[in-house]
Design a protein around this nucleic acid. Structure first.
Length: 420
RNA sequence: AGAGGGUUCGCAUAGUGGUCUAGUGCACUACCUUGGAAAGGUAGCAGGGGCGAAAGUCCCUCACGAGUUCGAAUCUCGUACCCUCUGCCA
C-alpha cells in the first residue's frame, strides 16, 4: 500500500510503475474514487457536526423544549445514515483499488516482462566437471535411499515426497549451518506459525492477488507459503523505538504452496514441491532508502558467503520489472547451478519493499524528532529445503554413486560421504 | 468442544444513555526548586483524516462489525482475541 497523498501528487510515477511491472492497474480510476471518497466524507462530516451540535443542545434544554427539538432531529438522523452509507460504499471501491497499487520499482531494475529477462549481476565459481556421466538428484538420492517419491505420491499426492536417512541428515545439517552463521551475525532465530489469518496475508502483500497459490482451511485461515508472513506480522500495530532498529530475524517454518500457476513445470524431484521448510531473513529498518539498500546488500551477501563456503556455483540476477511482486522495489534472485539441468535454478529471493508492507501492517517507529513513521522492510531466503539439496547432491556426486559432504557440513553430519 | 469472565490513552484503572471536550495514578518530556540529584511543584502527553499561512477548528477511533436511540464507552446482536474451569490431546 502506498500513501494516497503520494499517489495523488505523483500519478505519473504510478503509471510508469504499472508499465514497468507489466500490470494493468489504472491510476486515474483510483483518483476518481479518491475524489468521490473525499466528497462523501466531507458531506458526512458536515451533517454529523450538525447532528452532534443539536443533540448536545437537547441535553441542555429544559424538558418542555426537548420533544420539539427531538422531532426536528429525526430527519437529520436519516440524512446522516444515508451519508454514512455512501461513505462506506465509495470507501469499499477505493480500498479495492488501493490494494492494487504497485510499489515503484527502483531505477536500477531492468525492463522486462518475465524471469527470462532477468539480468545477471555476477557469478561465483565454475560449473563442476565430472569424469563420469553425472546423474540427476532424484536418481542419486533414490539409489542411496535418501528420498522416496513413489510413496510420497501414494500418501500425499502429486509432488509428495518422503525425505529419509541421509537425506534428512543433510537437511538438518543445512538448517544448523545456515542458522548458526546468522545467529553469529546478530540475527534472532524464530520458529513461526504457518497457519495464519487473512490479515497477515493482506499485510505482507500475498492477498488479494495471491489467493490461488494458497491453501485455505475450513476455519478461514491459510497455510502460508513463507515464514515472512507471520514474521512480518509479529510487530503489526506496534510502535517500535528507533534505537531498536534494525530488527533482524530468522523465521523458520514449514511452507505450503499450491503451485497453481506452475502447470507442468518440474514434475519430478525436489525442486518444486507443495510442502517444504525455509529459514527466512526478515528485516525491519528505519524509513530511509539508503538504509534499505545497504541492508538489502547485506542479506544477499549473508547467503552468498555461505553458498561460497559450501562450494556451490551460483549467480545473482537482478529481477526485471515484470518479475517483481506488487510491493517489491527491487529483487535479486540467487540461482544455484543444477548440473543435470545444465542451468541455474532459483534457491533464494532477496527483496526490499520500503514501507509498502509496514503501511499495510501498521508497523511504525518514533524517530528522533518524535514523529511516527512507517518502518521499511526487507526479506531474503536464508535456506530452503529440500530444493537446495538437488544442487548439493548433484554437485558433490562421486563416480561410485555416493555424495561427498561439503567440508563445512561435516561437523553437523558426522561423516565425509553420504551413502557409504 | 462446553460454561463463565474480560478487551477503555505506553502500563494500571474509573466510567452502566447527554455534564465524557473519556477522569485518575504510574511512566515519559520540559521547566521551577538544588552545588548536583531525589522528593516536591508547574505544564505537556493517543492516533488518523478534512479545512487553514498559522492560531485554530471539525470529523472518526473506548477490540472489530451491525443495530436500537434525537444522542452509545455505556443498551442489543454477531465476530475476533485473552483469562478461568471442564473435556480432549503432543
Amino acid at each position: 500500500m502506498l500513501d494516497i497523498k503520494f499517489i495523488r501528487e505523483n500519478p505519473d510515477l504510478i503509471k510508469e510503475a504499472v508499465k514497468k511491472k507489466h500490470l494493468s492497474f489504472n491510476v486515474d480510476e483510483l483518483l476518481v474514487a479518491e475524489d468521490r471518497r473525499k466528497e462523501a466524507l466531507s458531506e458526512f462530516e458536515t451533517l454529523r457536526a450538525k447532528q452532534n451540535e443539536l443533540s448536545d443542545a437537547v441535553a441542555k434544554a429544559s424538558p418542555e423544549e426537548r420533544s420539539s427539538m427531538i422531532e426536528a432531529l429525526k430527519p437529520i438522523k436519516e440524512q446522516v445514515q444515508n451519508a454514512e452509507e455512501k461513505v462506506r460504499e465509495v470507501t469499499k471501491t477505493w480500498q479495492t483499488l488501493m490494494l492494487a497499487v504497485p510499489n515503484i520499482p527502483d531505477m536500477s531494475v531492468p525492463e522486462g516482462a518475465s524471469d527470462e529477462e532477468n539480468v545477471e549481476h555476477h557469478v561465483f565459481g565454475e560449473k563442476p566437471k565430472f569424469d563420469f556421466v553425472p546423474k540427476d538428484h532424484t536418481e542419486i538420492m533414490e539409489a542411496l535411499d535418501m528420498v522416496d517419491f513413489e510413496r510420497g505420491a501414494k500418501v500425499s499426492g502429486f509432488r509428495g515426497y518422503f525425505l529419509k536417512n541421509d537425506g534428512v541428515l543433510l537437511q538438518f545439517a543445512l538448517w544448523q549451518y545456515f542458522l548458526n552463521a546468522l545467529i553469529k551475525k546478530g540475527y534472532s532465530p524464530f520458529s513461526v506459525p504457518s497457519l495464519v489469518n487473512k490479515q497477515t496475508l493482506f499485510g505482507s502483500g500475498y492477498l488479494p492477488q495471491g489467493e490461488d497459490d494458497l491453501y485455505k482451511t475450513q476455519d478461514d485461515s491459510y497455510l502460508a507459503g513463507t515464514g515472512e508472513v507471520a514474521m512480518m506480522s509479529y510487530h503489526s500495530d506496534e510502535v517500535l523505538s528507533e534505537e531498536d532498529l534494525p530488527k533482524k530475524y530468522i523465521a523458520f517454518s514449514p511452507c505450503f504452496r499450491r503451485e497453481a500457476g506452475s502447470h507442468g513445470k518440474d514434475v519430478k524431484g525436489l525442486i518444486r514441491v507443495h510442502e517444504f521448510f525455509k529459514l527466512e531473513q526478515v528485516v525491519l529498518c528505519e524509513a530511509n532508502h539508503e538504509t534499505s539498500v545497504s541492508l538489502h546488500e547485506e542479506i544477499t551477501k549473508n547467503v552468498e558467503t555461505l553458498l561460497q563456503e559450501l562450494g556451490l556455483h551460483y549467480h545473482v540476477v537482478t529481477n526485471c520489472g515484470g518479475d517483481l511482486g506488487l510491493g517489491q522495489v527491487k529483487k535479486y534472485d540467487i540461482e544455484v547451478w543444477v548440473p543435470s539441468q545444465e542451468k541455474f535454478r532459483e534457491t533464494h529471493s532477496s527483496s526490499y519493499f520500503h514501507d509498502f508492507q509496514t503501511r499495510r501492517l501498521n508497523i511504525r517507529y518514533k524517530d528522533k524528532e518524535g514523529k511516527l513513521r512507517y518502518a521499511h522492510s526487507l526479506n531474503n531466503t536464508l535456506v530452503a529445503t529440500p530444493r537446495i539439496l538437488a544442487s548439493i547432491v548433484e554437485n558433490y556426486q562421486q563416480a561410485d554413486g555416493t555424495i561427498m559432504v561439503p567440508e563445512v557440513l561435516r561437523p553437523y553430519i558426522g561423516k565425509d560421504f553420504l551413502g557409504k
